[in-house]
Amino acid sequence: MNPKKLTTMALLSAFALIIFIVEAQIPSPIAIPGIKLGLANVITLFAIFTLTPTETFIILIVRIILANIFAGQITTFFYSLSGGLMCFFATFWLKYILSQKQIWVAGVLGAIFHNVGQIITAAVLTRTPAVFAYLPILLFSGIITGVFTGLCTQFFISHYRKIRRR
């Protein structure tokens, strides 16, 4: 791995970590477990579209482990991990079929799969299938927040490409 790649990955992990921790400090206006903006996903998506899948995977795992050391506890670790992995496997292949103007689609699919992964983990960990009652509202919120984070990534990437061309 060359130093430039390593630096990029370290920088992106740090960005994701900061975004994650800052977002965790803002109290959620909606008191339904699992609903949040998920801004750290912007970095994951950015990595998916500009780096290789392996590199993205490393950034994601590093971010989840560090974020839980700094801002979480052991139970939230499994929710972040399952959500993050579902999101990753649902979106990393999308860069081969989506155009530059469709990056937001990956944001939406990522958010949906992230929420589904978390519900499955919650059902397994609490051994209560009733938590699937949250599926409709989490799908809905996932689509809304996914459009937002997806569009953020899309603008981010198009600006990034402009800067790199100079």
Partner: peptide, 20 residues
């Protein structure tokens, strides 16, 4: 923060304490 529940729609879930 979830407040009162009075129907079968959504359970109150406290994930850290594994309480539903």
């Amino acid at each position: 923060n979830q407040g009162w529940i009075s129907d079968g729609t959504a359970p109150i879930v406290c994930l850290p304490n594994k309480l539903v």
